[in-house]
């Protein structure tokens, strides 16, 4: 290259390696008919799912369709406040934005009557005593703080009942 060429390695400033192009997009999200039912249930302190008319599985929350059969899950089901820990992990690593003191338990909870588990915190039990099959119940935020959000569930805590038999939840682990 000639000395007047500003391209590439001959430019003593070197190549441009970084370019900042800030992007922000705003969305007005539509939860949908089925998920809106679930969110309204959370605002009333209860879990609302939907049952598939073909395989009879209950999804909570439901996206409106049975992912196995591809049919609308129009049968609305109110679920129990109790469930079973199907699997869990102990969080020991701090990260940005963490709102709970470590160590804490993050678990998959299968509500009684549901056919799909969802994620929840387990508290009011030492972390080394949490186990698969542990029977738990939801603890909700104060009534005035309830809203159409999973944040309405503060955490799950042990009911004190005997552990669930593995056979009752082995299909959901």
């Amino acid at each position: 290259m000639t000395s007047g060429d500003q391209r590439g390695p001959s430019d003593e400033r070197g190549p441009v390696t970084t370019l900042a192009t800030p992007i922000r997009l705003d969305y007005v999200f539509s939860a949908g008919i089925a998920q809106s039912r679930n969110l309204r249930g959370l605002a009333e302190g209860k879990f609302v799912g939907q049952r598939c008319g073909v395989c009879h599985k209950v999804y909570v929350p439901s996206r409106g369709s049975c992912p196995v059969d591809g049919v609308a899950t129009d049968d609305v089901v109110e679920l129990a406040n109790t469930g079973t820990v199907t699997t869990y992990c102990v969080v020991n690593v701090p990260f940005a934005g963490q709102s709970i003191e470590i160590p804490y338990i993050c678990a998959m909870v299968l509500l009684d009557g549901a056919d799909i588990s969802f994620m929840g915190l387990i508290q009011e039990i030492p972390t080394d005593e949490v186990r698969m099959g542990l029977r738990v119940e939801a603890v909700w935020v104060d009534p005035e703080d309830l809203g159409p959000t999973m944040a309405s569930v503060k955490y799950f805590r042990p009911t004190g009942d005997p552990d669930a038999d593995y056979e009752t939840y082995k299909d959901y682990t």
Partner: peptide
């Protein structure tokens, strides 16, 4: 503007 249905609920009757 489809305010009620999500994408899954929009697609189901089409399928």
């Amino acid at each position: 503007r489809e305010l009620r249905r999500n994408e899954v609920e929009t697609l189901m009757p089409v399928f």
